[in-house]
Design a protein around this nucleic acid. Sequence first.
RNA 1: CAGAGAGUAGCUCAGCUUGGUAGAGCGUCUGGUUUGGGACCAGAAGGUCGCAGGUUCGAAUCCUGUCUCUCUGACCA
Length: 608
Amino acid sequence: MSTINAQADNASRHAALNATAGCVHNWSQTLVPTTREAPSDAETPSHIFLVRAGYIRQVGAGIYNYLPLAWRSLKKISAIVREEMDAAGASEFLMPALMPIELYKDTKRDVDYGNLLFTLEDRHGRRSALGPTHEEVITDLMCGAVTSYKQFPLNLYQIQSKFRDEARPRAGLLRCREFIMKDAYSFHLELEGDAGLNHTYDKMYQAYTNIFTRCGLDFSAVEAEAGPIGGSASHEFMVNCANGEDTILHCPSSGYTANVEKAEIGERTWSFDVAPSAEITKHHTPNMPGIDLVAEHLGVQPAGMLKSIVFRRVGTEAKWVVAVVRGDHDVNEGKVRDAVGTAVELAPEAEARAAGFAIGYVSPRTIDTIKMTLVVDPDALNAESWATGADEKDHHITGFNWSRDMADAIAGGKVKVADIRNAEAGDPSPRAPGAFLETRRGIEVGHIFKLGTKYSSAMGLSVLNKEQKKQDVIMGCYGIGVSRTLSACIESAHDENGIIWPLAIAPYHAQIVVIRPDDEGVMDEANKLAAELSQQGFDVLIDDRDDRPGSKFKDADLIGIPLRFIISPKTIESGEIEFKARADEGKAELIKREDAVRAALAKCESIA
RNA sequence: CAGAGAGUAGCUCAGCUUGGUAGAGCGUCUGGUUUGGGACCAGAAGGUCGCAGGUUCGAAUCCUGUCUCUCUGACCA
């Protein structure tokens, strides 16, 4: 963990506190519109609490106001990101959010990104885009700004609002159309060595580990698919949380961790040579979309069926690919791509029908009538008898047997066996023989990629190297969803009463709940304590509202400030003060007034 | 994009079937009484019922169109 520039006399101060004096704010002078009820459409905890606790208000679908509390937390996350990025040798700068659409032409991302790209037209009829990421802008910038190999390596980053026209924004800040992101781009002429991509990639991996650790998050770094952004290697940083959107596979024995798109499956035994146990029988199965319905009708389990998915190779001649998996498994497009050696996409239904595929009723036997590549998952081979499509509308068959019914194709080497499905809990580990994969859920908050020369070659970013040869620049890119990190943190750290912030990214470190602020001396005492805490680097929120104690306690739980003091006429009378951590169960404890700051400092050590 | 649902007060919702000029709770404001886990009493403010057409003597309510938002799925650095 990197250190903050601490003053000499505060060398032991907790890293989550300010190095210099913290701020003191009064609740009555800021905007924290808490509500008793959440909007009815809020369903996930982070969405409910962000709204109820007065952090965000919705403006449109996937577009939110960040109110003062949220903005303070976002700034703290950003500050940690900046410190770690700077410490890792990256330089902050800022690109525009708005850019001419032409920038996306060379890389074809205006098409590849599709409707996800926000576009608009200005008064002159020019089309522009709101940046979803900035590979093109920075590559274009580098084309003109970097002239010599001696300027590499470079790593530049920005923190900025990003725009994606998500088909379905959801869950508050978790999936927005406008969101805050840190994106970094690195440039190299080689992979290895101190100046190479791999070195920077490793530094970013470490910086991300530092960032999410300092944010107080429970997270995993997982191997990931590069996706449409392209590139050769990538890792995702996922906040572990039970209701996360993404599935992670984990091998407890080897520590192998990958997301479901990437996760490999260990060795599985399989054979074509299984004696048939039944004749092929045709069944009429009309109006049964989905494996489950057909299986039920045929009286078999989904695991007793074969699922045949028709893909089309992207941009080549021999175009059809049929991927066969067991009925209860899901085909993994990336693995199919790797198995057949070219990019594939789900075949458009109309075209596949025109080519002779009985979509919805396709079986491996289609290979007898249509020229195609057949890829089969090992788990789709071993049974004596399978139920599958009849290659004819509204019909399925039972009794299919690979060795008997596909003998010619197998003998001709036309049946390729490969791991082409999503891994599941219980699958053999790819790294530790005898071990089995487990699943977890997570929310992606960071992603690092080795891009290679995808963008530089498409946009002509090249320089003369030492040997005076023109060379495409090798790139990496590194993203962090700043606003998503805020909500992911709440997803994993809350109780039924509200948010429980880690010290490092809480909007304030400490809150002083003032009971009877109108009573003589109580506010004075609160201000005095706030000043003392502030001197020690605490950011302090004083709840000075003239409200009943019950409401103030409820609101305090809701907004989730880590440390809480309670001052009332009673505590002043006895020379004491009440103190508790938000994460602690039960009531606050009474401590001596003069011990207040010391108690707060000590608590920082135990909770953060 | 497919399927489903919802737009009435700051928030949660009722009213719509069976048309007659709009309600409750919470919140807000005033006064009073209160003050340790979302108090109480009295009073007040606040809505051209998403928008546009249509039917009708009369539309929140019926019809048509349209916009917006949400959920499930597909999609997704």
